[in-house]
Amino acid sequence: MHEETVYEALVNADGEAGHWAFGTGFDDPLAGVDTTVPDGVDPADLGTYCLMLGDDALVLAQRLTQWITRAPELEEEVAIGNIALDLLGQARLLLARAGSAGVLGRSRERAGATIPDEDALAYFRDADEFRSTALVAAPDADFARAVVRLLAASAVRLAVFTRLRSSRDPVLAAIAAKGVHELAYHRDHAARWVLRLGDGTEESHRRARSAVDAVWPLLADLFTPTDVETRLAAAGVGVDPAGVRDEVRDVLGQVLGRATLPVPAWPAAAPPRGRLGQHGPELAELLGTLQGLARQHPAATW
């Protein structure tokens, strides 16, 4: 490295604003992509479905980000950062896709004209307009809760994305094809921690067990399809979550078994409240932090 060249580059750092950093040079993550909605598909259904998948990713990324500077080891700071970045990337693509399908609703009126669709949707919707599940919104009481939840959430998402790769919507299919590699790593990372905690010390076993007990009831509504999902599954665009339940149950059962953790009874199916915009107070609280600054400055450019 030539010392002088580095200083030179710094002094001239104002010459090409916007081209330095991956992700800073463009505002529209779908720039250049054909976003035509496939024939016979209601754009509102497609947009709503993208919100479901995008909101799950955004909310889980936010929960994981709460661990940054608080993780057990520096290696884990890096790993959690990676996983949160992957999910944030998925959220950006899916929210942009939702925007291109025209489901912006009131968020577009609340956000200033300079704010891109992905941010209008992330920052200017209220909690009852979010389509995320209770599984991703639940706060982490400790690291065991964080990794058990990550295991469950990534197992479900990986099963859905694996099928979504053959979606008739080429944008969703492309997002899923990229996402499966990321999600396979997230699931593996979480599973390794569940093994270490379950089969580690007495205390870690107790905490892992209590985390499983806390997370399992949150699986109740994940596999009940909404009408939107049922219609999109029939049209070859979306995935019926009921169809991934057995696979997820097997995966989770295997990991818990190897982790010497008892597998709780599978919860009875519940209505998909989160997908319909019905949430507990923890989501509103999370969104308050996420959205506060952006909402204070709706005309600002960031």
């Binding site: 950093a21 970045l85 891109p116 941010d119 960031w302």
Partner: peptide
């Protein structure tokens, strides 16, 4: 990180802190 005012800024900041 939790309050970054756009998703792009959040991703940039998270990558930096990482």
């Amino acid at each position: 990180l939790l309050a970054a005012p756009s998703l792009r800024r959040k991703a940039v900041l998270l990558a930096k802190v990482q």
